[in-house]
Amino acid sequence: MNLTSNIQSYSINFHDDATIINANQLNIYYSGKLTVENFNLQVPKNKITALIGPSGCGKSSVIRSFNRMNDIIPGFSLEGKIIYKGKNIYSSREDPVRIRRQIGMVFQKPNPFPKSIYENVAFGARVNKYQGNLDELVESSLIQAALWDEVKDKLKESAYALSGGQQQRLCIARAIAVSPDILLMDEPASALDPVATLKIEELMWELKDKYTIVVVTHNMQQASRVSDYTAFMSLDREKIEDRIGVLVEFDETTKLFTNPKLKETEDYITGRFG
């Protein structure tokens, strides 16, 4: 499978129709330093794909390159292609603004704007010139994010008055409101307590009918609970000092956790890593 490197890796293959994003031989650099090398991944449509691996292995770098969020970091550069709807999102003809509208993102720490709950959800719709009824959009987004019942009487209040878990669901509602195809979630529950975490996981499960979800997590239980597919990333063992992230194994979640193909994966999921 792997073309250029001698790193052992294993990936399942999908028919092109079943995938929504194809990452093709990605090399990611920050200020000239290689951070992720030769990364290939086919993200299946309307499924939840988890990205796991030890910290610093480049999971966030990869997911943030799927909607060109890395563009705003000075010194970032990327080689390779990310094909979405038949087009390379890094081609010069593609506008990152449009890409980000279509590929939404939820971050590690809830980051609501210092505005009202309503304005938070309506923000993306306003900047992207939503033509429909804004009130309905806000309501339906909050319903989908399972937050409506908790906030319907205080839409005009500051988003900062919500609890951390509620804030994170508000951020999900905000992302849904611009009707993306894909939701990227970068450790969405890492700052939350266990109950709030479970709510987010449940929500992901409900959302996958309409959206493709890619979730980065350092929590293997979470990956095994919520995802259909799991990609395991690690540091390149040949050049461990350089801290270069590589994809090790990508498979159905049940297979990866019960019957990993590679010893490195097995070591990690059984806690024998490092």
């Binding site: 506008d95 603004v97 449009r98 509208r101 279509q102 719709a125 900047v127 992207n128 010139k129 939503y130 033509q131 429909g132 309905e136 959009l137 309501e139 339906s140 987004s141 319903i143 989908q144 399972a146 849904i176 409101a177 611009v178 009707s179």
Partner: peptide
């Protein structure tokens, strides 16, 4: 969840106006 209240959000509703916003 009140399923009937979910309004389908259609991408077509977004005018985006990317070129004007870039200007």
């Amino acid at each position: 969840m009140e399923a009937e209240k979910i309004i389908s959000i259609d991408t077509k509703h977004y005018k985006e106006n990317i070129s004007r916003r870039n200007l």
